[in-house]
Amino acid sequence: MAKIKGAVVIDKELCKGCGLCIVACPANVLGHSGEVNGKGYDYVKMVNPDACVGCASCGTVCPDSVITVYKVKI
């Protein structure tokens, strides 16, 4: 059976840390990084990258369009 693996890239300087992508993710991949970017926001990063299936829910709800989603079949 083909397995689907995904990955997201978040532009950490543009992320405002609103956290809407964290609750939108069905696989609990994303979380606050605990660090701040140049604007002082606690940006979001992949805290559990192995679980990502590339469903793009995070990118769909991101108000600032800072998320790019990648997906491969292996």
Partner: peptide, 12 residues
């Protein structure tokens, strides 16, 4: 290997 131009499914 996942983060490549041809694998993009969602972008700005």
């Amino acid at each position: 290997d996942i983060i490549k131009e041809e694998n993009i499914v969602y972008k700005k």
